[in-house]
């Protein structure tokens, strides 16, 4: 399911790189990438439900997206979701392709992750959505072990209370 995608191979980019505005193109590369597959078709551009960047303290996130209800061939449209750690999506990988409109991602280590999604129909691809950034910042291990210790004390005390109480009740 996970596949790598090399954007330099896309026709639009190669065409632009041949032109004399090479320097400007390099500067505008991230923006160009986002609109690189500007549709030569009428495929709608999906948008993520989260309009702002997301912070996760447990390494998981649920991304959902949608397209306008009045889009043509709505039922047949599939989506391609990409994930990357770099701003320009140069090392992006496709983590989902299919008709669903959400995906749950978990087990992420600390770091910033960027996601984008686009519609696909009959081999053609629409424009990329505005990317969303997920910042994963796990809780501190010190806090985790403090709560683990506290939990152990409370559970131990509760078990002792029940066992001792039960013994005394049996004797009575």
């Amino acid at each position: 399911m996970v596949e790598n995608c090399n954007y330099e191979q896309e026709g639009t980019i190669i065409f632009l790189l041949k032109k004399k505005y090479f320097g400007m193109i390099v500067l505008l590369y991230p923006i160009i990438l986002q609109s690189a597959s500007l549709p030569g078709n009428d495929l709608p551009v999906p948008e993520f439900a989260a309009s702002e960047d997301v912070v996760s303290t447990a390494g998981h996130v649920r991304l959902s997206w949608d397209v306008p209800d009045n889009a043509e061939n709505l039922a047949a449209i599939e989506f391609e979701l990409q994930q990357t750690s770099d701003v320009a999506f140069q090392k992006a990988k496709t983590i989902y392709s299919g008709p669903d409109r959400a995906s749950f991602i978990s087990g992420l280590p600390n770091g910033d992750y960027r996601f984008r999604v686009r519609a696909r129909l009959d081999g053609e691809a629409g424009g990329w959505s505005t990317p969303v950034t997920v910042q994963v910042q796990h809780q501190s291990l010190r806090l985790a072990f403090t709560l683990l210790g506290l939990g152990a004390i409370v559970v131990l005390a509760t078990v002792t209370l029940v066992i001792v109480g039960n013994r005394k009740a049996n004797i009575e």
Binding site: V2, T57, A58, G59, I105, S106, G107, L108, P109, H138, Q139, S140, L141, L143, A144, F145, L147, L148
Partner: peptide
């Protein structure tokens, strides 16, 4: 792909 799921030091799961 999801290294924290098999990491025994995942803070949220310890909590």
């Amino acid at each position: 792909e999801s290294p924290m799921l098999i990491n025994v030091l995942l803070p949220a799961s310890i909590m």
